[in-house]
Design a binder for these strands. Structure first.
Ligand SMILES: [Zn+2]
Ligand SMILES: [Zn+2]
Ligand SMILES: [Zn+2]
Ligand SMILES: [Zn+2]
Lengths: 165, 165
DNA sequence: TTGACAGTTGTTATAATATAACATAGCATT
DNA sequence: AATGCTATGTTATATTATAACAACTGTCAA
């Protein structure tokens, strides 16, 4: 896995790695990565841009898969349940998980310029959440952490385009 | 303002404080807290449970207000723009802001038992987000931080009900 | 073999959330 | 009164997601 979704990299390796990982993981767990489930996962991994359910559905339809909404929502539910992808709540879109072995919700950087997402699992953030929750006697079950802004690459591009003073 | 939405408190004071605050704040800013906007804000503040747009709409309808979706979404957009409420993205619901003077996105504790929400603005969390973003050269514009779990009161209740060993 | 079961998929309909587009009304300034 | 701005009314539609039930598929044991 590359260090950042935002930096240029050989993304085909992301895809093959993710799919390979998913296959072995599902085999280990005794659950079925059926054709439609695998195809949805591949489509989600087509890029680091989170993708919406109905966009996935349109792709499936073009490829001759069944294309009623439950098809894709069931696949997304399965993949999410296996920790193979995450839903980004603030944009109703789905992105592949970089580290599906252990259950987690992750933290996401969303670039509003290139629309790519990078998953983190920062122990700083986890600790800060825990400390804040503890202060209120609150027991954390899960969380949604989505940070919107501009990634390093897009910042560099916009800086390069600025008029020189 | 009370220290916690979860603890028992005189909630009528939350409401009057929030509405009074909103009135003076809108007056200061030269924007209009019209009847429907004020009523939506009051409805949002009816409790510390985040409320959905269509539930607000149903209440408005009962009270003789116009009850087409744009009415409530416009009010929510105005109130959100003035920092008087927040949308909780993970549940598509809206909750009054405790501290509308300064712009912020806040951090939310959502109790899955009593369905109440407590807004925080933890500097620990803000710092952790900033550190993580900085490590990736990412410039934060806004964020969605929603922590789901069980509040202190509900934990105490469930503990009290547990069978003694 | 066959039938019972569990899991998966197909199909239809509908729920829930949100916005586009354009018309009308109120209100302040000139 | 005419103008322009903000807010509201109205109709229609877009977007996201789920309910409900039927049909198919493979497994395994009687
Ligand atoms: Zn990649
Ligand atoms: Zn992940
Ligand atoms: Zn209160
Ligand atoms: Zn707030």
């Amino acid at each position: 896995m590359q260090t950042s979704a935002f930096s240029p990299h050989d993304h085909s390796r992301c895809i093959t790695s993710a799919i390979g990982h998913a296959k072995s993981l599902c085999a280990d767990r005794g659950v079925k990565l059926t054709p439609v489930r695998q195809r949805v996962l591949e489509l989600v991994w087509q890029s680091h841009q989170p993708i919406g359910a109905y966009e996935l559905l349109a792709s499936l339809a073009k490829e001759g898969f069944n294309s009623a909404p439950p098809t894709v929502y069931r696949a997304l539910e399965f993949l999410s349940g296996q920790g193979l992808l995450h839903k980004l709540e603030s944009i109703n879109a789905y992105v592949g998980c970089c580290n599906p072995d252990t259950p987690h919700q992750g933290h996401f950087l969303l670039c509003q310029d290139c629309h790519q997402a990078q998953e983190l699992d920062s122990q700083y953030i986890n600790l800060a959440l825990k400390v804040s929750a503890d202060q209120h006697g609150f027991k954390i079950q899960r969380h949604t952490i989505e940070i919107v802004g501009t990634c390093e690459e897009c910042l560099a591009q916009s800086t390069a385009l600025e008029p020189t003073p």
